[in-house]
Design a protein around this nucleic acid. Sequence first.
DNA 1: TGACAAAACATACAACTGTAGTAGATTAAC
DNA 2: GTTAATCTACTACAGTTGTATGTTTTGTCA
Lengths: 128, 128
Amino acid sequence: MTLPKLTKLELQIMEALWTRGEASIREIQESFPEMKRPAYTTIQTTVYRLETKKAVRRVKKVGNFHVFEAAVSRNAAQRRLIDDLMALFGGRTQPVMAHLIESGKLTLEDVKEAEKLLRQLERKDKLK
Amino acid sequence: MTLPKLTKLELQIMEALWTRGEASIREIQESFPEMKRPAYTTIQTTVYRLETKKAVRRVKKVGNFHVFEAAVSRNAAQRRLIDDLMALFGGRTQPVMAHLIESGKLTLEDVKEAEKLLRQLERKDKLK
DNA sequence: TGACAAAACATACAACTGTAGTAGATTAAC
DNA sequence: GTTAATCTACTACAGTTGTATGTTTTGTCA
């Protein structure tokens, strides 16, 4: 059972659920910056679709509205995004890194941090 | 004039053009691994759409077939892909790096390489 | 030069996505 | 209880993408 592919809007909705834990359609809608807030029913339809994809589930009903929560973790969803991108690059990280650097998004600190993480991981691997 | 968003199939077609320089529909089609080779007309339709998007142009006609070439660079297209992904992460590279590391795609060499690149860039910046 | 092969071009169509309107149900508020 | 606000559930529709078919054009070779 692989986790579904999520679109941009779907991800924004998931983001609201991930940060809040639970939310109603209205709350999700209001989490969008006022200037680019889709109609209530747009959010609703998309949440329903997420439900069909098993990315979201309803947890309870309060008053006359339902409360939803994420059924897939942020981590898994993000991993999926990155894996998909990497597949487009034939799994090679080098071009990706190069682009990140050229565009100035990757700083020396980021890289140092990454290096630390890697060394930690290495140690852990040795233990087993 | 921003460069168009390309889908997976479109990118695969572009890849064929980027590596070959020029190619006919037939050649593009045959660049796909036999087991997952779309029909000739599928490629054709998609190339036409790429033409509409100005990502591809026809350079000449040889015999009764057209020869196409990429009208956007691999570099620009890849940059676009990564920018789009980064936007989903709010521009923060950290989570992306973390995922790459966790999934074992990013090695210590990769990171060292990135560091070198960064230092070079830094020097260049100082000069101006 | 006429038949055949290959390519081009136009058209189609279903799935998916973003978008939203409407009708009817539910709840809250007097 | 009646009404106003809010939700839900259903329906719709246009743009994009992957897929392909059918028809027309072009080129080649006997």
